[in-house]
Amino acid sequence: MPHRPAKHSLTLHGHRTSVSLEDEFWSALQELAQQQGRSVAALTAEIDAARPADMGLASAIRLHLLRHFRNKPG
């Protein structure tokens, strides 16, 4: 059963922020960052820069992860 979102702290563009994500999404974000050889903060900064102005960061992260893992072979 999915857990409630929990706050996770990050530094983006030199500023501390937090994002509320379910543990499963946080783990997937960490996994993807590790696969790409970079930090969670660096990956999140890229997602943040690409998101529409009217979309929250947590939603942008979830959608980015969904698209990535749906398109992953195997």
Rank of each mutant, 00 (worst) to 15 (best):
L43P: 09
M55S: 12
M55Q: 13
T44M: 12
A33Q: 00
R62A: 01
G37P: 09
A49I: 10
D48Y: 00
P52H: 15
D48M: 05
A60T: 06
A60S: 10
R38P: 07
A28L: 10
A45L: 03
R62H: 03
Q30M: 10
A45R: 12
T44V: 14
D54F: 06
A41R: 04
L63V: 12
A53M: 09
A42Y: 06
A41M: 03
E46Q: 11
R38T: 13
L43S: 03
D48P: 01
I47H: 02
D48V: 02
A49R: 11
Q34F: 09
F25P: 00
F25I: 06
D54G: 10
E31V: 11
A60L: 06
R67H: 05
V40M: 12
V40Y: 03
D54Q: 14
I61V: 13
H64E: 02
D54M: 01
A53Q: 14
G37F: 08
L63P: 03
R67N: 14
Q34V: 07
L29N: 00
P52D: 15
L65A: 00
L29Q: 03
A33G: 07
S27D: 12
P52F: 13
G37C: 08
A33I: 06
Q35R: 15
A41T: 13
A50Y: 07
S39N: 02
T44D: 00
L43E: 01
A42K: 06
Q35T: 03
R70Y: 14
L66H: 14
A42N: 08
M55V: 15
L32A: 05
G37Q: 08
E46S: 09
W26L: 07
A49F: 03
E24W: 05
Q34Y: 13
A58Q: 01
T44A: 03
A50M: 12
F69E: 12
L29E: 01
